[in-house]
Design a protein around this nucleic acid. Structure first.
Lengths: 344, 344
DNA sequence: ATATAATACTAAAACGTTTTAGCTTAAAAG
DNA sequence: CTTTTAAGCTAAAACGTTTTAGTATTATAT
């Protein structure tokens, strides 16, 4: 025990105080009094002492014995990204409600970091994991699944893997946005996305492409993908090209960071929105409301996504990984502001 | 052990494989071979097996025995606030470098939550705590200090308590901003801050007041404090009053959230910056660069503050709380954009 | 009366470590 | 040759739980 915890009351102390065995106390504490037919009067006396002595079980010991730590491991790509910090906050809240605490790490979109974090979090005793998987992490997730480690993917998933997730309907998200832009009369609509093979990116791209095709705008399809490492300069290059060379009429950004870098570039270029080019952003940002022209955006149900992930995970932790997998696909919402209106 | 961890190699397995006692293995692993005069050849054989069998110590067991968890507890007021999520990211990075993992919670500026979180985090085995303290938490921190729980306060501190912290020089921050506004020729400068008795708030207020007084602008001092619970509407009310009633020439926001709400209000009111009113914000935000008029702001050395906090904490964990306390006060930087220029 | 069953409880092992105290054996000292 | 010292190692306790396999004791059935 650390010196600053010396004072803690143990189950032994309670047992001694009541004059019974530690077994008895343990059983009562864990609500197994009936099951082990402990006399009601005895159970009452034990509980009273527990309250009186302010006993709380030592989770470390409990975990060592084979129980749980009530610790949820969370791996996001970057906790300082507002989208993920929002997710984290909701996960934290829901976890707390269910008596769990969150232990976290950021992978920076690198599967090697993801693996390291998984090892660390499990070694620290995490009862289960909520993971934002990244490119190259499929094998890792497969292994977790085989090991029956309670795991829920969030934000992105592997469709060919039978592993639970809680994600946005990403295809629907860009369908909504693209349809809206087409309805507004824009034809040359371009999409900017990350260079990634993950489901969220691919689905957002295909939602856009499918909608363009359906509207007979196949020839106008224009997708540019930028790197994670050089995002800002890649976005700048792409946006300039969209505007100056491709004569794009509307830009669809498929991520909060892409939106923000894009808007920064448009501002620097002194491009007028929506007169010179229309814009739809992704996720939420204070910037969208405060930009010179308020920006339309696709809103994810962050609360639901995060809460669902926790609920699925806790169910798995409690009822075993063997149970059927849960795939939660949640609805996006298109918030229309002036930036995407034809006559804004 | 959880079923998904069944495979793990224990010290016993290694001992058996080498044909020695667990004691021997433990000593070698913990670098005490020399001290306990284990034969070099033996130590070599053990280490070889450890590598071969890919053994890693079970941290839960190690902690139970009285060691450490390599877990740092972090309590911020709200992980989804960009300032704190940035802080958290840096803390995470530095902690990882030093072989620690972060376990966190948000207090929502409520000392009751803070106390609950402290209990939970310590019960989960945190080796030490990094805390953003809030109003009413002074007694709690005092108790931590008396118990010798390794603790570092961050962002705010209690000056009359001999407890380590890593904070901005808050007084200097508003001195810098106020001086700048005065130099630009503004006289009626108003400050908006949170309703709080915490050091960061008080120092920011006094930095402003001291500078106003020194410039002979005592009569122009105008401070409004808003609640944590109703921040947005309070800010809106205050800003309207500053503009319409007080004829304020420049507004100094003392926090990132206050800045953002304030700018939102100014935009809604269609107030022109800096022509109608000058503005200086606090902390960093994408909004500052993307607002119609780029906004000047006081920048905190987030990286330094966070890294320093971790370093102080880890030193405490390793060398005992008894060591002298470290008080880190870091320098703010004023970033000047158009919003605070007289002839913007 | 005796076997059986139910009630109310407990001893002890186990989880994976670290550490204290002590045990051999061999070398050095007397 | 004994005794002391040193070298090299180990047995066992301890950390705080949970759980398995009991043990008494009393009640019920035969």
């Amino acid at each position: 025990m650390k010196d600053f915890e010396k004072k803690k009351v143990s189950i032994k102390d309670v047992a001694k105080a009541v004059g019974v065995s530690t077994t008895l106390v343990s059983l009562v504490i864990n609500g197994k009094a009936k099951q082990y037919r402990i006399a009601d009067e005895m159970a009452g006396r034990v509980m009273a002492k527990v309250k009186e002595m302010n006993y709380t079980p030592n989770l470390i010991a409990r975990n060592l014995r084979g129980g749980k730590t009530q610790l949820i491991g969370l791996i996001v790509t970057d906790i300082s990204n507002p989208f993920f910090s929002m997710i984290s906050r909701v996960i934290e809240n829901r976890a707390n409600e269910l008596n769990y605490t969150v232990i976290f790490g950021s992978s920076d979109e690198k599967y090697t970091n993801t693996q390291k974090l998984i090892d660390v979090l499990l070694n620290k005793g995490a009862d289960g994991l909520i993971i934002v998987p990244c490119d190259g992490s499929e094998k890792i997730m497969e292994r977790l699944h085989l090991n029956k480690t309670p795991t829920v993917l969030i934000d992105r998933c592997f469709k060919n893997l039978d592993i639970s997730f809680s994600c946005l309907d990403n295809h629907r998200a860009t369908v909504l946005a693209t349809q809206h832009l087409i309805e507004q009369g824009f034809r040359k609509i371009s999409l900017i996305a990350y260079q990634s093979q993950m489901s969220n990116v691919l689905d957002r791209i295909s939602g856009y492409k499918d909608t363009m095709r359906k509207a007979g705008l196949e020839k106008q399809i224009n997708v540019k993908q930028v790197s994670f490492s050089n995002t800002k300069s890649d976005v700048f290059g792409t946006v300039k090209r969209f505007i100056e060379k491709d004569k794009t009429e509307a830009i669809l950004f498929s991520t909060n960071m892409l939106s923000i870098h894009g808007l920064t570039c448009l501002k620097e270029m002194n491009v007028k929105i929506p007169d010179d080019v229309a814009v739809v952003g992704f996720d939420e940002s204070d910037v969208f409301d405060l930009y010179e022209c308020p920006v339309s955006y696709i809103k994810q149900p962050v609360e639901q996504i995060a809460k669902t992930a926790v609920d699925i995970l806790v169910d798995k932790i409690k009822n075993g990984e063997s149970a059927k997998q849960s795939m939660a696909v949640l609805e996006p919402e298109l918030i229309v502001k002036r930036s995407s209106l034809r006559n804004g």
